[in-house]
């Protein structure tokens, strides 16, 4: 009996996070109140090296055909590198490949930038204002402001903090009526995010944050060519993709945010912040085309 009580207590403890998670989901902490930004004058957050979880976040925001193109071009490029290393083989790839690779990378880099800054979760200005994002309730110390303000833009310092935390504060939280609609909407947003003129940096769903999305074909290419990859690491995209050689176990990112199966977080590109109103209208237009019941559940600084 004592054992049983102990076991029940342990089970209860194990169930606690699930219950808490479910409660958060039902109450929609992220939805009603959203994460908070913690302001301080502490030392700037160190730059973190790219890891597989970050790169997967960016890759997951590409349309399937854009991802295929990136994989094919990487494969071709590494083949060319291999050919150059072997004087007995003829290099059949020319400048055209470089141009296509550059164009493909140019579409991918803004996503990688957004993913890097999103996962980082802490940012600093050049004059010492430090900002980090936290789940509401997890905060210890520092002045806090809502990442998504209920009304108004707030004080100047608040506006600065939200600018530094742009991958969070300028993102749109979309709520679809059901998971299937959410999936269709994500597909369409990713399709359009892969275009050169796109304003979208990341399209994140529950699986994105859980890190469970798989990129088997890309992983195979980088694993098979790991030695060549090391020689091509000067390329900014290759350096990121090389992290998939040894991705490790799926890693949860952005612990400050929960997304339900019917929610998406759409993060703009850094280069689109001055077109924020246009970005919001664009997101709503796409959402409306999929299902007019989709809503934006947060408010951006404006």
């Amino acid at each position: 009996m004592a054992w049983s009580s102990r076991r029940n207590a342990v089970e209860a403890l194990l169930l606690l996070p699930l219950v808490a998670g479910a409660t958060l989901g039902c109450r929609g902490t992220a939805r009603e109140h959203g994460p908070v930004l913690v302001l301080s004058s502490s030392a700037p957050a160190p730059d973190e090296a790219l890891d597989a979880a970050t790169v997967k976040l960016a890759l997951g925001s590409l349309a399937p055909n854009a991802l295929d193109e990136l994989v094919d071009l990487l494969d071709e490029g590494l083949t060319a590198l291999e050919t150059k290393a072997n004087p007995l083989l003829i290099d059949v790839l020319d400048g055209d490949h470089r141009d296509r690779w550059a164009a493909s990378v140019a579409r991918f880099l803004p996503m990688l930038n957004a993913a890097r800054e999103f996962v980082r979760g802490a940012w600093s200005s050049s004059d010492g204002l430090s900002v980090r994002v936290e789940r509401r309730g997890d905060v210890r110390g520092g002045r806090t402001i809502p990442a998504w303000p209920a009304a108004g833009a707030g004080e100047r310092t608040d506006q600065r903090a939200r600018f530094l935390a742009w991958p969070v504060s300028y993102a749109r939280l979309l709520q679809a009526p059901d998971p299937l609609t959410c999936e269709r909407l994500a597909g369409l947003l990713r399709e359009q995010a892969s275009r050169p003129e796109a304003m979208t940096g990341l399209v994140l769903d529950q699986a994105s944050l859980a890190g469970t999305r798989r990129f088997d074909e890309l992983a195979r290419v980088v694993r098979d060519r790991r030695r060549l990859l090391a020689r091509a690491k000067g390329d900014p995209a290759v350096a990121g993709l090389a992290t998939l050689v040894d991705p490790g176990e799926p890693r949860r990112v952005a612990g400050w945010l929960d997304l339900s199966p019917r929610e998406l977080l759409v993060v703009p590109r850094l280069s689109a912040l001055a077109r924020d109103r246009e970005f919001g209208q664009y997101v709503m237009r796409v959402a409306g085309a999929v299902d007019p019941r989709v809503t934006i559940a947060n408010r951006v600084p404006g």
């Binding site: 140019a106 850094l270 280069s271 077109r275």
Partner: peptide, 23 residues
């Protein structure tokens, strides 16, 4: 590069990006 009030942002065709906000 687009200037819109207190914020500006832009990019190059090679994927470099920049944004600025007036304090």
């Amino acid at each position: 590069v687009v200037f819109a009030g207190d914020i500006a942002s832009g990019s190059t065709d090679r994927g470099l990006e920049l944004s600025a906000k007036r304090r």
